[in-house]
Design a protein around this nucleic acid. Structure first.
Lengths: 152, 152
DNA sequence: TGTGAAAGTCATTTACA
DNA sequence: TGTAAATGACTTTCACA
């Protein structure tokens, strides 16, 4: 599907704040409320807009510790890979998991309360998953930039 | 501020879908619409809910290529660090940038159209920033898990 | 905090350029 | 695609347990 300039502007606005009313959006884009409404419905139906979510502030909910973990598997048989991916996806501390190129197989983003909680996560959860060869963790010292808004 | 069990359930629901009506939420949590309304306002005012956003599907907007870049600076003087962080935050391809512990100084999440666009990004944008010592890129082969919902 | 009901605003549908 | 107007649903405020 082709996005025109208005669709793109609409997506930019909705990626910043999806609680804006169609009236507000119609003012910003010089269109009628109904036109905005129909465009948004179309973008939702096409799956371009995946979902609408509330983003929380980590620190305010006692999840201020963020770490990235590199993981290497012992073997790369279909069976090991599938099992690992299923188990890691079930860990609530793991917000993101990517299969990546390079020295390691996976990159995980982990979010917990503090260093002690991270230690427990590593010892009791992550390294309990079978087939993990080695891990290498990096701790986030500061968040320079963190957005979900993709440029269009 | 202390979150009770209802606040936590509310945040779990809003992290999944923030477009649910207060009536729907009130049914799920067995509370009145007004009670839900007041609790949400409180969570917004406290800054626990940071914002409400639309999440898009990368692939559908021609941004299917995701890479993580490690970056090491030449020097770590206050001046270099501040400049680097400001410039990297201005790059629209960089969705996330973290100052991290370990062998490298920063970890970036970059999203572009394809490998060729990534090459251009590296050559024309990223490595044009001064003070970068070395970089190491990892390409995302597949996304095993990607959520913004923090467990409470 | 909680509630139900009133007031005002918004999303959604319809008829039509 | 677009618009304006009607309707029903929702958010928001209020008076009160």
């Amino acid at each position: 599907m082709m996005l025109d300039s208005i669709d793109k502007q609409l997506l930019v606005l909705l990626q910043k704040d999806c609680k804006q009313t169609n009236k507000e959006l119609s003012n910003k884009l010089n269109l009628s409320v109904t036109a905005i409404y129909e465009r948004i419905k179309k973008l939702e139906k096409e799956g371009i807009i995946n979902k609408y979510v509330a983003l929380l502030k980590n620190e305010k909910i006692d999840k201020a510790f963020v770490a990235f973990c590199h993981i290497k598997l012992i073997q790369h048989s279909q069976e090991y890979v599938v099992k690992f991916e299923r188990e890691v996806a079930n860990l609530s501390e793991v917000l993101e998991c990517y299969h990546i190129s390079g020295d390691y197989d996976y990159l995980l983003k982990v979010i917990v309360k503090d260093m002690e909680a991270f230690r427990e996560f590593m010892v009791n959860k992550l390294t309990n998953i079978n087939h993990i060869g080695s891990t290498h963790s990096m701790f986030v010292i500061s968040e320079v930039k963190h957005t979900t808004g993709i440029n269009l």
